[in-house]
Amino acid sequence: MDKVKIIEAKESLLADNDKDADRLREEMKQQGTYYVNLMSSPGSGKTSSLKQIIARMKDRFRIGVMEADIDSDVDARTIAASGVDAIQIHTGGMCHLDADMSRQGLSAIGSEKLDLVFLENVGNLVCPAEFDTGADLNVVILSVPEGDDKPLKYPLMFEKADAVLINKIDAMECFDFSLDQVKANIHLRKPSVPVFPVSAAAGEGFEAFCSWLSGQIQKQKEGTRQS
């Protein structure tokens, strides 16, 4: 090997993805589409919470949902039945979505015709937090049966959260779960992040979250108009 050539690349994969995510965020902003990345572990109630959110917001916003899963399209079918556009993104074995896959999804769903797009990320409290999808907001759902210590065990996920929904509060009596403790643990990771206790099964607690989310969308719209 007399002709070996060494290239000092110094290429950061996360930085590269972050740049792509920033570009995507700016494009969505210009187009007037607000983009929310929903993350949680499997079974914490992302799809059923989305149904509750959609029911409360679909009269005011044109909504689309991108369901990311390793396989199957059960979630996309469930969401489509609630009367909004839904597509399924198959990650082909991968545990998270990056900015490029997110861009392909937004194009496939026709985001230019939508005011609000939710990405239901792959159910996982670790990997999706590392890759910026280009969303305006990261919303994390933690459900009561998972335990109030999870923000301590999965620090990055809660550091990235712009809002946390505590789901299945109707089951609180059956589990050793304290709302005060979970809030304290979440705020250790990210001080002052809003926490919304909800029950997707009973349809409780979503008014406060939807009103907060509408406020965030409004804020961005006003920001775009001013700039």
Binding site: M1, K3, V4, K5, I6, I7, E8, A9, K10, E11, S12, L13, L14, E130, L188
Partner: peptide, 21 residues
């Protein structure tokens, strides 16, 4: 204190590539 921040340790960097042609 709990007021701490990670300064390094979460990187994925392609440091170098060795070409053999």
């Amino acid at each position: 204190s709990w007021d701490t921040v990670l300064v390094q340790g979460n990187e994925y960097i392609i440091k170098q590539i060795e070409a053999d042609s």
